[in-house]
């Protein structure tokens, strides 16, 4: 028994998780990726031409978890590169701008297209620019929140409101990715109230 423990101690695990970021132009896909990988945020908008790719490795004891994050340019001309991002992805983050309702509406289309290439990936619905969102009138916030919840339950996806510039719920997105990918119990409290950065991942 002692011996087995000894050997498994030395076991090194390398796990790579591919995560795709998909959504309309200017919702903040690249920003989120850069924020998560390099922990920095740049106000200047740079259009993604085609596909961006970054990796972040997390060491947890003997395990190396590598997130390889693929970010698809939001313009319609890059839709032909969708398979590159979607295939073999463990999780796909469908992202929309909380301050622009139209970006939420086009999630339906993104979801449908992406499902065509990858039926097994865990979908996530991620609202961005929460810091802008709270400036909106309460009624509008309420309307967007309700609609987002509706979409999330239809997609059977966790719903997360995040802010890259204010560092809200960025790390949590990827923790939820791990918990969903390995079916682990997560005890982070959910946030459900309108006006707060929604964090819903259980019983969706």
């Amino acid at each position: 028994m002692d011996e087995q423990d000894h050997s498994s101690h030395r076991n090194k695990n390398n796990i790579t998780l591919k995560v795709g970021l998909i959504g309309d132009a200017q919702v903040g896909k690249t920003s989120l990726m850069v924020k998560y990988v390099e922990n920095c945020f740049d106000e200047v908008y740079t259009q993604t031409l085609g596909v961006n790719f970054m990796e972040r490795t997390i060491n947890i004891k003997n395990t190396e978890i590598t997130f390889s994050i693929w970010d698809l340019g939001g313009e319609s001309e890059f839709t032909n590169m969708l398979p590159l991002v979607a295939t073999d992805a463990v999780a796909i983050l469908f992202m929309f701008d909380l301050s622009r309702k139209s970006t939420l509406n086009s999630i339906k289309d993104w979801y449908r297209q992406t499902r065509g290439f990858n039926r097994t990936a865990i979908p996530f619905l991620v609202g961005t620019k929460y810091d802008v969102f709270i400036e909106l009138p309460i009624e509008e916030q309420d309307q967007i929140t309700k609609q987002a919840k509706k979409y999330a339950s239809a997609m059977n996806a966790p719903l997360i409101f995040s802010s890259t510039s204010a560092s809200i719920n960025i790390q949590k997105i990827f923790k939820i990715v791990i918990s969903k990918a390995f079916d682990l119990r997560l005890k982070i409290p959910e946030i459900t109230n309108t006006g707060e950065p929604i964090l819903l991942y259980q019983d969706i």
Partner: peptide, 16 residues
């Protein structure tokens, strides 16, 4: 992994 994801200390996120 479970321990890690439930550990808030390794989090850079700001409390909302």
């Amino acid at each position: 992994l479970t321990n890690w994801i439930n550990n808030n200390e390794n989090d850079n996120d700001i409390n909302f």
